[in-house]
Design a protein around this nucleic acid. Structure first.
Length: 203
DNA sequence: CGCATTTGACCCGCGC
DNA sequence: GCGCGGGTCAAATGCG
């Protein structure tokens, strides 16, 4: 299950505007990643999702993005998501790790992983843990350990699929980024997003 | 010895 | 106005 059938791949960058030039990244080293070769990107679910009126049913991810009035089913507010779409994504280590960070605001990802500690290149300090009402799984609260950086993230296991980890990011890092790029793909069938891999830029 | 994680308590906001 | 749920803080403990 999972990533199979991903029809599109997106490359996110943790810093939004600050990483504008990241578009110029050379194509990742060729790999056998099935998602890269067929990356048909089309108008990308993210593009659609960013538009008014198209929410929730596109991706479950949006359930967590709703913040600036973008409440699923009720809103039409643009999502604070800045996603870069790259047709030539070819990198895929398929480690199913962390998710991406929105250029501003919030973003959440479901990642198929057995581990809850998703290495996304940033240093996180855990500051809380809480059990959520409609889920048997606890939710963990992390904060970027970098001083002055108030980015927060919440990690919890999907209540429906224990195989998935839901990671929610909130805020923007205001410090040097590790330069990790995340490759996400959407399964056209379920409309769900998956992180298909990560790519570390130059150290 | 220093730092990160853990766990429980406390506080705030929202809904009923 | 009260209760519930969620989020954050802070002290203690464990590990590196």
């Amino acid at each position: 299950m999972a990533v199979a059938g991903a029809g599109a791949a997106y490359r996110f960058h943790p810093h939004g505007a600050g990483f504008g030039r990241s578009m110029a990244f050379p194509p990742p080293p060729g790999s056998g990643c099935p998602y890269s070769s067929g990356a048909s990107l089309s108008s990308a679910a993210f593009g659609a999702a960013t538009g008014p009126g198209v929410l929730q049913q596109e991706l479950d991810v949006l359930d967590y993005l709703s913040d600036d009035g973008g409440v699923p089913g009720t809103a039409g507010a643009p999502l604070p998501v800045e996603a870069a779409v790259v047709p030539d994504v070819g990198y895929c280590d398929h480690t199913s790790r962390a998710a991406a960070v929105a250029a501003s605001g919030k973003i959440a990802f479901r990642t198929r992983s057995e581990e809850e500690i998703l290495e996304d290149g940033y240093k996180w300090r855990k500051y809380g843990k809480k059990s959520v009402k409609n889920s048997p799984n606890p939710r963990n609260y992390y904060r970027c350990s970098t001083e002055g950086c108030s980015v927060k993230k919440r990690v919890e296991r999907d209540k429906d699929d224990a195989n998935y980890v839901v990671t929610m990011y909130e805020g923007v890092h205001n410090h040097a980024s590790p330069g990790t790029i995340y490759y996400a793909a959407q399964d056209p069938a379920s409309g769900r997003f998956f992180v298909t891999g990560t790519h570390q830029l130059a150290p």
